[in-house]
Computed example of a mutant assay.
Amino acid sequence: MRKLVLIATGIALVGSLSACGKNGYDRARPDEFAVARAAPLVIPPDFALVPPRPGAPRPQDTSPSAQALDALYGGSQARSASENATLDAAGRTLAEPGARSTAGSPTTNVVDKGSTTRDIIAAPEGDGQTARASTTPK
């Protein structure tokens, strides 16, 4: 009886699969390449190309980062009157030139924050006993 059920199941499976063949059930599907018509190639009537000027810099000689800065910020422009007034009020004329280069100089005055700040910065990472700052003097 068991063999008979297996044979009947096999015949039913083969019969159902034969319906998927070309001669059996044939679906008419649209061709995905025929759905949209391709536009014909057309040469534009005016390229608006200008012949190069003698002595002018070549466009490919500028760096991509400079081109990006020009695109973002519009290149170098004159400061407005309000911007000049703000800079003058902030003390533009009193500022030392090269203040960033003198910040790490040995002659620069620094404020001593004490050993606690130094210990916190030098503490190892983690949550172990060695990573905790102690308040008792060493």
Rank of each mutant, 00 (worst) to 15 (best):
I43N: 07
N109W: 13
D61N: 03
Q60M: 01
T62A: 10
A78R: 15
L69A: 11
A19K: 11
A36Q: 07
A19R: 15
A39G: 02
A36G: 04
I11S: 07
A89T: 05
P40W: 06
S16Y: 07
S105R: 03
Q129D: 05
R53I: 09
I7D: 02
G21F: 01
T86M: 15
R58D: 04
P40V: 03
A81E: 14
P51R: 09
D70A: 14
Q60F: 04
A89I: 03
A56I: 01
D127W: 02
P97E: 08
V5M: 11
T108C: 05
D46G: 03
I11K: 00
T117P: 04
L72S: 07
D70V: 13
E83G: 03
A90M: 12
G55L: 00
R27W: 15
P52R: 10
F33T: 15
N109G: 10
G24M: 12
A39F: 03
L17G: 08
R79A: 12
A133K: 01
M1W: 12
M1E: 10
L13T: 09
I11A: 12
I120Q: 05
G74W: 04
K3N: 13
I11N: 01
A81K: 11
D70H: 07
G75D: 00
E125L: 12
T136K: 06
A36P: 03
R79L: 13
T102Q: 10
G15V: 02
G74F: 01
A66R: 09
N109C: 07
S105F: 04
R27M: 15
N84S: 11
G74Y: 03
S101C: 04
F47D: 13
D127K: 04
A89D: 13
P106S: 13
S105G: 05
S105E: 12
E32M: 15
N23E: 14
Q129I: 04
Q67L: 08
P54T: 05
P40C: 03
V110P: 02
S65E: 12
S115W: 08
A66L: 09
L87R: 13
A122P: 00
T108K: 13
L13P: 01
G126H: 02
Q77L: 11
T117N: 10
V50H: 13
D61Y: 00
Q60Y: 02
I121C: 01
G75M: 02
T107H: 11
I11Y: 01
G104A: 14
D26P: 08
M1D: 09
V14W: 04
Q67D: 13
R53G: 05
R2V: 08
A90E: 04
D26F: 15
D112E: 08
S80M: 03
T93A: 15
S18N: 06
S115E: 12
I7G: 03
R37M: 10
A8G: 04
L87S: 07
E83S: 09
G55H: 00
E96M: 12
R37Y: 06
V111I: 14
A90N: 04
P97T: 11
S76H: 08
S134T: 08
A66C: 05
Y25A: 11
A99S: 14
L94M: 12
P54V: 04
T136V: 11
G128K: 01
